[in-house]
Design a protein around this nucleic acid. Structure first.
Length: 424
RNA sequence: GGAGGAGUGGCAGAGCGGUUGAAUGCACUGGUCUUGAAAACCAGCAUACCUUUACGGGUAUCGGGGGUUCGAAUCCCUCCUCCUCCGCCA
């Protein structure tokens, strides 16, 4: 959520940058400015009335002590009238505030200057293309879902039996490979200075609001209505919320956190070839990295995160490319996002395995997450996060790219974790 | 799940209807003293919003929400959290 003040002071710039993501609602922007002014006016009025009530109350107390009953009674009627007035003002204030909140919630983050205009994923800019070789597959090769069946790596039909579509059951070496990837990613994050967390998988409404899942995107999350809790769609939610309502010192930066969690997404996806196998699931595993940064450092941090994710893919030997998302494809809360896609050789497709974003102050405003500068002034921090990495598509690409006549080869870096070299 | 008790500033801890945004101690910051440090002493030290060029002023906040009252940290209702005991349980 942007700050009303920021919008007011940067009206033209905000409008201009938002056109990059096809947001052109100048009316909404102006409404915010008007509502915010109205809010201030009402508060000034009601503060004045409250001040009168407060001082009268003190006088009434004194008058009673002095036995001046009549004067006291007179003031009491005054106070009663003010209270009626105050109540009306407060009702108006509540209305204005909720309208303002709604309007602010409808405004997406302002894209970074480097974000290209565009409507769909086809307009994304290839920030770093793959210049290496693509895997050479054997004559007879298979997409990962057929390999899964052949080698007993995961079973979607069993998942349907237990739960429903989109809930895979990993088994045998498939389960071990999954566990190996998680451990590998966490170890790499630790080496890069990220502190590991194991957060709750259910969060309350406040947390879901903090990172921007609520309101608006409730359809995306599984909701345990009896207890009013939400299954997390990503570790970003609990981990970023660790710092909700906090005031940091400049020396606390950078804050680097990581965590492995299962992720749950309701999004009733389409069916067909593009979502077959592990391409799109309701439950999947992911290691996430989250950073809380000084505003001046946040873009350097973003670069650092890109490097980290690229390093993981290099070590796994997967061909990948990096995209800079265009305005139309950019998430609502993000100022700048880079997607990583790996090439899955049997499907002959690029699969998104990571999304690394800088939210600038869009989340921290909601989270009330600030820092104190050298002059003791408080400012909002910048928050960032990225997948490092999402497991299913990594697994899909590994299976497809590493298949041989004799089985599927495990990448060198994972062998200490799996303790087997080949799935056959 | 049952029965009790408690939630006050960064921490500890007073206050239990009227200049109490809140005593006191610790911590923290600045100063005096000191060759330096410690100690001692003096001063400052919550958050949010509104207002002011500035100095400053106003309002709200004593777990959250609601109520009683001219006036609530203090009384009432409700929710949350924590502690103790009992039950259940990986």
């Amino acid at each position: 959520m942007l700050q009303a003040n920021f919008i007011k002071e940067n009206r033209e710039k905000v409008l201009e940058r938002l056109t990059v993501r096809n947001f052109k609602d100048a009316h909404l922007i102006d409404e915010i400015i008007i509502l915010d002014q109205k809010r201030k006016d009402i508060q000034a009025d009601s503060d004045n009335i409250q001040a009168s009530i407060n001082s009268s109350s003190k006088e009434i107390g004194n008058l009673f002590k002095q036995g001046k009953k009549e004067e006291a009674e007179e003031k009491r009627t005054n106070v009663a009238n003010w209270k009626i007035e105050l109540k009306e003002l407060q009702e108006e204030a509540d209305l204005v505030k909720s309208k303002l909140e709604d309007a602010l919630l409808a405004v997406p983050n302002v894209p970074h200057p480097s974000v290209p205009a565009g409507n769909t994923d086809e307009d994304n800019e290839v920030f770093k293309a793959w210049e290496g070789d693509f895997p050479k597959l054997p004559e007879r090769h298979f997409p990962h879902w057929e390999l899964a069946e052949k080698y007993g790596i995961f079973d979607l039909k069993l998942g349907v039996k237990l739960t429903g579509a989109g809930f895979p059951v990993y088994r045998g070496k498939g389960a071990k490979l999954q566990r190996a990837l998680i451990a590998f990613f966490l170890d790499e994050a630790e080496k890069a200075g990220y502190e590991e967390f194991i957060p709750p998988l259910l969060v309350n409404e406040e947390s879901a609001r903090g990172t921007g899942q609520l309101p608006d995107k409730e359809g995306q999350m599984y909701h345990a209505t009896v207890d009013d809790l939400y299954l997390i769609p990503t570790a970003e939610v609990p981990i970023t919320n660790l710092y909700r309502d906090a005031i940091l010192n400049e020396k606390d930066f950078p804050i680097k956190m990581t965590g492995y969690t299962p992720c749950f997404r309701r999004e009733a996806g389409s069916y067909g070839a593009h979502v077959r196998g592990l391409n799109r699931l309701h439950q999947f595993d992911k290691v996430e990295i989250v950073r809380i940064e000084h505003p001046e450092q946040s873009y350097a941090a973003l670069d650092d995160m890109l490097e980290h994710v690229a390093g993981l893919l290099d070590k796994l030997g997967l061909p990948y490319r990096i995209l800079r998302l265009c305005g139309g494809d950019l998430g609502f809360t993000s100022a700048l996002t880079f997607d990583f896609e790996v090439f899955s050789a049997a499907q002959e497709r690029w699969l998104e395995v990571s999304s690394v974003s800088n939210f600038e102050t869009f989340q921290s405003n909601r989270l009330k997450l600030r820092y104190r500068d050298a002059n003791n002034k408080k400012h909002l921090v910048h928050t960032l996060n990225g997948s490092a990495l999402a497991l299913p598509r990594i697994l899909a690409a590994l299976l497809e790219n590493n298949q041989t006549e004799n089985g599927i080869l495990v990448p060198e870096v994972l062998r200490p974790y799996t303790r087997f070299d080949i799935i056959d």
